[in-house]
Amino acid sequence: MHQGIRGFLIILIFLAIGNVISWLINNFVPGNVIGMILMFAALQMHIIEEKSVESISKLLTNNMTLMFLPAGVGLMAAYELILSNIAGITLATLLSTIIVLVVVGKIQDKWGKKE
């Protein structure tokens, strides 16, 4: 319990620092993404202990579907806009997904270290 609360506090502090930096750079990159990069860097440089944020990080990321449910429910308010643009939305989503798959796979396959 102690460990969990401490870990949560550490994460919230990184989130807050990320939000401040985001505000300073005119919201160019979202604060939580900056917080993520900062926590990653702090873990890599052993500024914070891996163990201190382990349990809370696993709890949050294993249940992230729950955290974005409220946004998904917004479908009930946005469905008209989606339906009136359904062709473009569908094609853009499907085609772009394939493009990303092939581009990333091909480049890594060509330039990556041979296995």
Binding site: L12, L15, M36, M39, E54, P70
Partner: peptide, 25 residues
């Protein structure tokens, strides 16, 4: 109304993104 009521849950998105830093590590 739903959005307001569920705010405590969507708030957790921020900490969840930060927690991804641990996963990347």
């Amino acid at each position: 109304t739903y959005e307001k009521g569920s705010h405590i849950i969507s708030f957790m998105l921020g900490p969840t993104v930060v927690a991804l830093g641990y996963i990347l590590h």
